[in-house]
Design a protein around this nucleic acid. Sequence first.
DNA 1: TCCTTATTGTTGACCGGTCCACGCAATCAC
DNA 2: GTGATTGCGTGGACCGGTCAACAATAAGGA
Lengths: 340, 340
Amino acid sequence: MVTMAEVAARAGVTKQTVSNVVAGKSVRPETAMRVRAAIAELGYKPNLVARSLATGTTMTVGLFVPTVANPFYSEVVEEVENVLVRHGYNLLLATTHDDAERTRQHLEILAARSVDALLVAGDAGVTARLPMLADAKFPVALCAWEVDPPDSLPVVSIDYEHAGFLAGRHLRELGHRRVVVVADLPAHSRRIDGLRRAFARDGLSVPDDAVFAAAQSSPDGGFDAAAAALAAHPDATAIFATRDVLALDALEAARQAGHRVPEDLSVVGFDDIAQVGRTRPALTTVAFPKRQMAQQAVELLLRAVESAAAPANAISLLRPHLVVRGSSAPPAVRPHHTTR
Amino acid sequence: MVTMAEVAARAGVTKQTVSNVVAGKSVRPETAMRVRAAIAELGYKPNLVARSLATGTTMTVGLFVPTVANPFYSEVVEEVENVLVRHGYNLLLATTHDDAERTRQHLEILAARSVDALLVAGDAGVTARLPMLADAKFPVALCAWEVDPPDSLPVVSIDYEHAGFLAGRHLRELGHRRVVVVADLPAHSRRIDGLRRAFARDGLSVPDDAVFAAAQSSPDGGFDAAAAALAAHPDATAIFATRDVLALDALEAARQAGHRVPEDLSVVGFDDIAQVGRTRPALTTVAFPKRQMAQQAVELLLRAVESAAAPANAISLLRPHLVVRGSSAPPAVRPHHTTR
DNA sequence: TCCTTATTGTTGACCGGTCCACGCAATCAC
DNA sequence: GTGATTGCGTGGACCGGTCAACAATAAGGA
C-alpha cells in the first residue's frame, strides 16, 4: 500500500502537508496541485485504521438488534444504514438473539474497537447489561424500547401503551366487546395495558384468561396461541396480536378454525411491517414509525458524536397511528353467546 | 483508557511482556500472574484499532447485500453474522440498493478500513464493479450469484437453472401444461430456463408472452404482474414466481381474481423464506439453502484469511430442493379452454 | 524602515499496539 | 568445565496517520 510518506516524497513536501491537502486545510494552491498529482499518480488512499488510531474516531456506529429475521428489525437496520451512509459512517451490525452473554461480548468488542456510537434496538437480552451501557465511553441510545426506560440513556421510541390504546379504541368503535390477545409476554404487556384502557373506558374488561402468550421458541408459537385463544373463547369477535408476525399466524389460525376475517372475526396487529399491507385480507394494524425512529435515533447519536458531548438524555416518543385495512370490521350480528 | 504501557509499569515488566500474556505466548507463570493481576486491577482492555494498525488485520468482514428488506437477504445476513461471531469476527454491513455508485463508495471505504474479507450477496448493482473486486487486497467471495459467474472470484451459489427445472418438473408431474411466470427480469432468467427445460422434455413450451416481469420499483409490482398474467392467460393452471415474495403477491392476485389455490391454480415459489411455510395455503417452493450457503461462503473466506492465500477460485454449487406444500396440486379437470 | 500579524510548511512527538533482534540465565549434552 | 540449546524478557523500530509547537517567508500598519 502506498503511504502518505511516499506521496510526500513524490511531491517534495512533508507528510503533514499531504495530510493537510487530504483534509482540505489551507495549503497554497500550487503546492496542493503538486500533492494532488502525486496522490493520483500513486493511487494513494488514506488508511482509515491509522487515522482512527490517531484521532480516536472510527466513523463506525454499532447497532444491536435481537435478530434480523424479524421484518420489523430488518426495516430498522435498513434505515439505520441509510442514515449512516448519508453521514459517511459505517455500520457494525450485531445480533443479540436475546442472549445476555453474547450481548456482553459484542459490547466489549465494540468498545475495544472504539465505535463512535451505539444504537440498541429492542430490549430483551440487553436490559441486564444496562449499567455497562451507561458508562460506555461513546454515546449510546436506545430505540424501540418498551420496558422501563432507564433514565441514564436517551430513548427514541413510541408510547406503547397509547399504541395499544389505539388498537383497543378502534375495536371498540367498531363495536367489539370480547377480544382475545396473542402476545409476546412479558415483553409486550404495555401494549395490552393500552388495549385494556380503551375497553375499560366503556366498562369492559379484557380478562387475563383472554391473553395468550406465544411460545417464542417455536416457530408455530403464534399459530398455536391463536388457535388456543379461539378455542377457549368461541364468543370472541376480535383478536389483537401484539406483533404483525403473530397477527399473520392468527389470521391463519382463524381461517383453519373456520372463521372468516373480517366477517366473523377481526384481527388487529402491531408494527405495520411491509408485507402485511399486501396480504388478503390486508391487516389492520398499529403503525410503528420505524424509519422515522431509526432516523431520529441515529441523528441524535451523530449529533452527540460531533459535539463530543453526551447525548441529550431525553425520551423522544414518536406517534404511532392506526392503519385500518381489511382485517377489521364490525362484529357480526349473531345470536348472543350464552355461557352454559 | 488504560494502555499496555500502564499495565506494564504496574507489573514491573515491558509492554511486550504484557502483549505476550494477552496473546497467550510463553511467559513464566509467575510473571504472567503479576501481569494478569495488573490487568485486572486497572481494568485494561486491549485497543483493537491499535492492534489492527500494527498487524494489518481487523477481524472484520464486509457484507454487501442489495437490501435487508427482502427476507431472503435478511436470512443471509443473519447467518453470516452467526458464523462470523462464532469465529470472533465482526460484521460490517453495507446495502447496495443496486446502485453502482453507492457500491463503489462502500467498496472504497471497506478497502481503506482494511476489512479482512468481503462477501457479496446478489449481483445486480455490483456486477459493474467486478474488476475492482477482483484485485482487492483482501479475499472476496460471491454468493447467491445468478448471472455470469466471473472466473476470477470464488462463488458459492446454487444451480439456478436446475432449481427452475425442479419447479417445472414438479408442475409437469402434477400434470400442468400451461403455466405463467412472474419474474424479476432480466435477473431471474436462469430460473425460467430451467422451468422451460422441464416442460420441453414433454414437448411443451412456456412462450415468452407467458412470462411477466414484475416492476421492481413499485411495491405492487408482483401483484400487478400476476394479475396481468392471469388475465392474459385464463387457461393457465399454474403460476411460477421466481421469488417467494412475488409468489405471495401472486397468491393474492389469484384470490382476487376468484381462483382457489391450489384447486383452480397452483402456485410455486422460489427461495423458501421463513414465512411462506406458515401462510395458508402454505407455499410450494424451491428451497434455497441460504444458511448453508452463507456458512460455506464465510468459512471459505475465513480460511483464505487465515492461510493468507487467495481463496480457492472455485465455484461451489449447493443443491436446491423442492418443498411441496399446499399451494400446488394437480390441475382441475375442467372443460378444455377453447380459444375463441 | 521596522515591527506585527498572517500564511505555509516543517519538525518531532504521539496514538497503542506488534514484530524482531538480542541479552541473559538456566538447562543439557559431551 | 565448556559450548550449544532453550526459555524469558528487554529495547527499539514500526504500522500510517494526526497534532502542536515552531520556523520561514510574505503582507500590512505605524
